[in-house]
Design a protein around this nucleic acid. Structure first.
Lengths: 195, 195
DNA sequence: CGCCTCCTAGATAGATCGCTCTAGTCGCAC
DNA sequence: GTGCGACTAGAGCGATCTATCTAGGAGGCG
């Protein structure tokens, strides 16, 4: 079994992803993690907030690894972009529309009320944007265009997740994925017309 | 002063938008609405959940009115699309990144835990999609294309809100707005090449 | 062996949660 | 005036929340 601390962080990340910060109790976390209650405050003297901040950073970093995992082995960035959305749609369907973005729920919930958690979310998003920018730039796009596409891709994914979970349909993910992939293609053609 | 019932719904909508469902207490709602506690359970025998469902529907419908308000007087749909995102960005800045989508926070929070609230959110989103489809179709686009653009527009807006609130920047809204407007333009050119 | 540190274990405090309940006020119909 | 329904008003219930507290077990080191 994983060490207690890791189990606590892992269980927190999963619960935060599904139900958000306020609705997730410390008791619920320790029950899911099969950990003693006191251990939470031993490892995280800052309490629930510190634990949530770490869970956000850890699960955000883990989710960010999907970028290289999907983009690097793909034949081209357009295919990779499409696969990115398709994979998200599949995972969402498999988990009965529960597992979308690991941090978006918390991000919206706490942005105006818990500055440390907002900052943790901001760091994660910035990391994703940097990762996406890197991939698009590696495909030959100018830095500024690459960054815009990365932001647009992540925004489209997040928004499609919102619609998909509420509507219980992957249509938004399909539509958004196609649109972003088309945009990436168009940008590539524009930046290197004589391919 | 507005009737008590309306003040309760209004205060609920505002608090739900900013902090979500779980973090918003009934006591906090009546304090903000300057209403007696008992009135909540007089008007909403279903309790907090029923109240939240109505607040979602009301504020969702109100937000949906932005679509005709912006699209109908605009010279063309491309300009309107841009203005839609620009207006959202301005409002977000004005409220110190507190007021974004009135229902997205709740939508993510409750989609897997409170079916009646998920359904209320789904109805609102469906209404917005229908409204957007109508506008794009009126501009001459085929029904299917219009619907895809409407979904993409709303998804991009929602996702940009998530990023913007966390990052405390309107850059995602600017980028997403430009991308969607360009996509609308491209669709128009494709469907009526000999303008 | 004794000692120290790290971690487990959970009882418990104090505040807050959603909600119920009773009592009272107000305006309108007759 | 009298009666009635609609609404106001908030005390208080049981449950649950986060966080603290004390006590003990496990293992390394002298």
């Amino acid at each position: 079994m994983q060490p207690t601390r890791d189990r606590i962080v892992g269980a927190s990340a999963e619960l935060l992803r599904r139900q958000g910060y306020a609705a997730t109790g410390v008791k619920q976390i320790v029950a899911a993690a099969q950990a003693p209650f006191g251990s939470v405050y031993h490892f995280f003297p800052g309490g629930k907030e510190q634990l949530a901040a770490e869970a956000i950073r850890v699960s955000g970093a883990a989710y960010g690894l999907l970028l290289p995992a999907i983009f690097d082995p793909a034949p081209d960035v357009v295919t990779a972009t499409g696969a990115f959305f398709a994979g998200a749609a599949e995972h969402l369907r498999e988990t009965d529309y529960a597992d979308a973005c690991p941090i978006a729920t918390v991000a919206l919930e706490v942005s105006s009320t818990h500055p440390p958690l907002r900052e943790a979310c901001a760091e994660v998003f910035s990391g994703w944007i940097a990762g996406g920018t890197e991939r698009f730039a590696a495909a030959g796009l100018p830095e500024a265009t690459a960054r815009e596409l990365a932001i647009a891709m992540i925004a489209a994914l997040e928004g499609a997740f919102v619609l998909a979970r509420a509507l219980r349909s992957t249509e938004p993910l399909d539509v958004a994925g196609e649109l972003i992939a088309a945009r990436v293609q168009a940008a590539l053609e524009r930046s290197a017309p004589a391919d």
